[in-house]
Structures are given as structure tokens and as C-alpha cells.
Design a protein around this nucleic acid. Structure first.
Lengths: 143, 143
DNA sequence: CTTGACCTTGGACTATGGTCCAAGGTGCAC
DNA sequence: GTGCACCTTGGACCATAGTCCAAGGTCAAG
């Protein structure tokens, strides 16, 4: 029986702050919870599962908005696996693109760093030289 | 003679909005420019170079704060190449770490997506199953 | 009955990098 | 001399995902 938790205990049990729970509620990820006579929010085991779902979704790189969609697919009885797959594929594509961008930049920085003479004044640094390069001279090394 | 540009023309010449130029100024990346009698900002070729430096820095993934540091190293006559290299290495490390994180998540999503039966109700989707998994059952497939 | 820990609300603040707006002044062309 | 395009300023707003705060209400212990 983990039911009847107030927000603080509930939040602690799922490893987030009480503010985060209220934030999820305000943003439609959690339904309005039950309340005590005094107006205190009360959570039960189902809420625990729901927050864990959200946390795992975040862990997989989904935004809260996407997680909201995933949650509604999860609760729907007409939703198809393809709907979930679609969101997932999009996310995969997004990550691939980000990885590709980051890799290219990283490689460019690495090339510049490799040429950088440590024991020299900054004026000899190819990194600064690259940043300060005139547009005309860029044909040398640009995509 | 590209000197004596007002902010709009200047911004256009470097491919940004006038607001962006003011933003850079407010954030210390551009020094206070000269002014006409009426108070209009006036820019010259050196400013063009400086903004291009900033843009290229952004292109290489540096934050404006880092670019500010790079700019001051660029204008310093005591700065050493090692100072620039240091910032660059940090950025490279940051990117490597991001790439690694993204790759792991992407792989995890790909594994789930590969198992997802397209023509099935969402209840059979391993992606939702993973998100909804109880903490106890996670030992099966977690790091 | 008081104290401390908890809860309520709405709103402000964080970081990042701009973008947009309103109210008013300027510059140039026709 | 009027209209339009530009400029000025300060401040508000966008997305993201929270975090923190103040003022006030509640609950249980001692």
C-alpha cells in the first residue's frame, strides 16, 4: 500500500522534487490528483507508475511534450504500435542528425587543436586564425 | 569603403538582425560603437570582422560566453596559444561526451524500434512496454 | 498552544540566444 | 513638408525543464 502519499513523500518516492510533480501537473502530464479535505494533493501507486514512465521517457531523450503523446498512446485502446514507432523513428533521426553535426564540428576542432603550437603566442594559434579568417580566404578550407 | 554603416546595413552585411548586433553589444561581445550626432550607431570594417568571428565561433559550437573569452584572447598581446587550445579541448571533450550520450540513447531506441511490430495495437509495442516497465523488472535489460 | 514540517497558490527566476514591440526621434526622397 | 524607412531605448517574450519564493493554511508532536 503506497497509497495516500502527499506530494513530498510521493516526489521522494519517485526521485524528483515536489515542484516537478506540480510542474508535470500544470503541463498536463499528470491528471489532477485527489485532494484531502484540506486541499492537499494525494497520490497512489498508479501515479508512481506514471511519473516513472515520464522519467524513463526523459532518459530516452524524449521531450515532455513527446512523453505526453506517448502517455496518451499508452492509455488509448485504439492506438497502434506504429504510432509509437513513428515518434521513436523521428527521435532516432533527430539524434542521428545531432550526432552527425557534433561529430563534424568535433573533427574540425580537433584538426585545429592538433595544429595548435602550445608554446606560442596566441597570434600563432590556428584556432584564432580560423575564427578571424577573412571570408575571401575561406575557400581554402570550407565546405 | 564599407565604413560608416548604420546598424541595419551593418547587420545585413554580416547576415544577422540588427537586434542581434545590439544583443552582442549588451552582452559585451561588441564594444560600444561610434555614434552619429543623432545617436545612431556606426560600424566599420573592424566591426564586420568581429561579428564574423562571433558567427564562426558559434558555428564551431562555442557559446557566446566562450566566444567572448576567445575574442579577448584574440585582442590580447600576452595571450598564449595554449589558452585558446585549452578552451578548445574542453569543447571537444564536451562534444565527445554528448556524442557518446546521444549514441547510446539512439542505439537503445533503435533496439526497441527494431522489435516494434508495426501492425499491432500499441499495447504490444516494446517501446511503451519499456517505458511502463516496473522498476523490479528492469534488471532484465538495464545498464 | 506553540513549533516545525509540511502543504497551498501564483508568479518570478535560471540558462541560451536571440526576437519583437511600443513610443518616440531622424534622415532622405518626392 | 510629408511620408516612409530607419534609428533609439527598455523591456517583454519564445522554448525547455524545472527551481525557488512569499504569504498563508494544515498537521502532528510535545
Amino acid at each position: 500500500m503506497t497509497n495516500g502519499l502527499t506530494i513530498g513523500a510521493f516526489a521522494k518516492s519517485v526521485g524528483v522534487r515536489a515542484d516537478t510533480i506540480r510542474y508535470y501537473e500544470r503541463h498536463g502530464l499528470l491528471a489532477d490528483p485527489g485532494r484531502t479535505a484540506a486541499g492537499y494533493r494525494i497520490y497512489d501507486a498508479r501515479d508512481v507508475e506514471r511519473v516513472r514512465f515520464i522519467r524513463k521517457g526523459k532518459h530516452l531523450g524524449f521531450t515532455l511534450k513527446e512523453i505526453g503523446t506517448l502517455l496518451s498512446l499508452h492509455s488509448s485502446d485504439t492506438a497502434r504500435a506504429a504510432d509509437v514507432l513513428d515518434i521513436t523513428q523521428r527521435k532516432i533521426a533527430e539524434f542521428k542528425s545531432q550526432i552527425s553535426d557534433l561529430s563534424q564540428i568535433e573533427a574540425a576542432l580537433q584538426r585545429l587543436a592538433d595544429e595548435c603550437p602550445v608554446n606560442a603566442p596566441a597570434t600563432d594559434c590556428p584556432i584564432l586564425a580560423h575564427l578571424a579568417a577573412l571570408p575571401e580566404r575561406q575557400g581554402e578550407r570550407e565546405d
